[in-house]
């Protein structure tokens, strides 16, 4: 019986203290970590069309189309298929593709979530956080001096 009363006291304490741990979402947005991985943003000015991101992507989310002179024509990214592993950002030698903190995006169909490069360029910064300023992408694992062949080319 004492256990029951203790249980009831515990919940009543929570009811009376008035604290809530949920927030009113669109008005109060959650703080996201500077390292948070959201929708990608693409910079055509920086991109050198090296295709490393396309190669490293574990589930073929990125599709790059180039002409026969290896000039970039299309950069498509299926945001609905992405698993947000951040390997594309890590591998990119020129920071042309980065994952913003933005997690708010919708689409009526799966096709709506296939972003072309114009859409990727237009992805807004979340709360004006520029991930490149707030975090320093870890390149250590890519620029190692190991004896392994440098591939991804």
């Amino acid at each position: 019986m004492i256990g029951l009363l203790k249980s009831m006291a515990t919940t009543m304490k929570h009811a009376l203290d008035g604290n809530t741990f949920t927030v009113e979402y669109p008005e109060t947005t959650p703080d996201v970590s500077p390292r948070f991985r959201g929708v990608h943003k693409f910079s055509q000015e920086r991109c050198i069309w090296c295709r490393q991101c396309e190669n490293v992507c574990p589930n073929d989310t990125i599709q790059i189309v180039t002409d026969d002179q290896r000039n970039g024509e299309q950069y498509n990214l299926h945001i609905g298929q992405c698993i947000y592993c951040r390997l594309c950002e890590e591998v990119c030698p020129v920071d042309a593709i980065i994952l913003t903190q933005n997690f708010e995006f919708t689409g009526d169909t799966k096709d709506d979530l296939v972003y072309n490069k114009e859409q990727l360029k237009a992805v807004p910064w979340y709360k004006d956080i520029d991930p490149l300023e707030s975090r320093e992408p870890d390149r250590g694992s890519w620029i190692g001096e190991g004896e392994g062949a440098v591939d991804y080319q």
Binding site: T11, M12, H14, A15, N19, T20, F21, T22, V23, E24
Partner: peptide, 8 residues
């Protein structure tokens, strides 16, 4: 229920 479970 929300009051007991710290929600809004």
């Amino acid at each position: 229920t929300a009051a007991f479970t710290d929600r809004i």
